[in-house]
């Protein structure tokens, strides 16, 4: 049982930060930027490169996050802002194109092989019944820390209030003296940092691969949509739900049901499960699970 919860936790951590980044930035740009999953890949590989150049991993990781944040702003200003002028559907298709282009770039620059951070060892810690590596715990800590910092930023600082204000009502934000474009690009930067940190967390726990972004694309989207796109903390809850569903599908022994000692569904069913939940949720609560506010005219 404890192992089950720790599996859910680890999977949640895989998805949470990228989903939070996606959700945050959606609240300001009003299209789901698919390229975010590639920012995660970029983050992990940049951190690897910087570590290879002699920097300690924490420094390399921080620098990689900042660089990816910068990349996100650059792409937003040069590509997405312009596409958005033609509508959010166009911008979303554009973000798919950027995702593909980045895939090709990663293949050329980083190659197809899986890589690992240079870490001395993977000491295993037993927490009650569950086995966790130190690096998995680090990823959990990084994720929790980032979510807490983000929540404090959003709800306890003037910058955060300006972000939420701009997300709710751009016109009124401008009339209140808020530079909506500056705020938007600040959030775009943050979303890049969060995605990169998510990617580094993913790579910390095992291997990194240029496919990693495409692998998490669907569950990350499912988590962000479940949480109600635009609701940053809802995305964390969405990630928990998707992780639980996936873990249930792959970890539960179905053997007794069919009179066999052991029967596990293959891991590929996990994705199908997130979709089942997503479709069901969208049919019942199309704006996510946590929306109870009626939009007044």
């Amino acid at each position: 049982m404890v192992q089950f919860f720790s599996d859910v936790l680890i999977r949640t951590v895989d998805l949470a930060l990228i989903a939070v980044g996606l959700s945050c930035v959606y609240s300001l740009i009003r299209f789901p930027n698919i390229a975010l999953v590639q920012y995660a890949v970029a983050g992990s590989f940049l951190a690897l490169l910087l570590q290879g150049a002699g920097l300690p991993l924490p420094v390399a990781g921080l620098l990689a996050c900042l660089l990816v944040g910068g990349l996100a702003v650059l792409l937003n200003v040069t590509v997405f802002e312009r596409l958005l002028a033609s509508g959010s559907a166009i911008a979303m298709v554009g973000s798919l194109a950027v995702t593909m282009i980045l895939s090709a770039v990663f293949l050329v620059v980083f190659g197809p092989d899986s890589r690992r951070f240079d870490l001395d060892s993977h000491p295993v810690i037993r927490v009650l019944d569950a086995r966790l590596t130190v690096h998995q715990l680090t990823a959990v800590g990084l994720t929790a820390g980032a979510v807490i910092v983000l929540a404090l930023l959003l709800f306890r600082t003037t910058l955060g209030r300006s972000m939420r204000a701009t997300a709710t009502n751009r016109v009124l934000a401008a009339a209140t003296g808020i530079d909506a474009r500056l705020i938007t690009n600040t959030v775009v930067f943050l979303s890049g940092v969060l995605a990169a940190l998510g990617g580094i967390g993913l790579a910390l726990k095992g291997e990194m691969n240029i496919q990693l972004g495409m692998d998490v694309l669907l569950p990350v989207f499912a988590a962000a949509i479940l949480g109600g796109l635009g609701n940053a903390l809802g995305a964390v809850a969405g990630a928990v739900i998707i992780a639980t569903a996936e873990t249930l599908v792959t970890n539960v022994n179905l053997g007794p049901l069919v009179g066999e000692p052991l029967l596990f569904l293959p891991a590929s069913y996990a994705t199908a499960m997130s979709f089942l939940i997503l479709v069901a949720a969208l049919l019942v609560r199309p704006h996510g699970l946590f929306v109870n506010e009626v939009k007044r005219v």
Binding site: R161, N169, A173
Partner: peptide
């Protein structure tokens, strides 16, 4: 400026709405 419609930040609290006006 007080716009004709949508003239409050609906998802923010009343005090947050007001303080934003003087954030500078």
């Amino acid at each position: 400026f007080v716009p004709q419609t949508d003239n409050v930040f609906a998802t923010l609290s009343v005090s947050e709405n007001i303080r934003l006006g003087a954030r500078h």
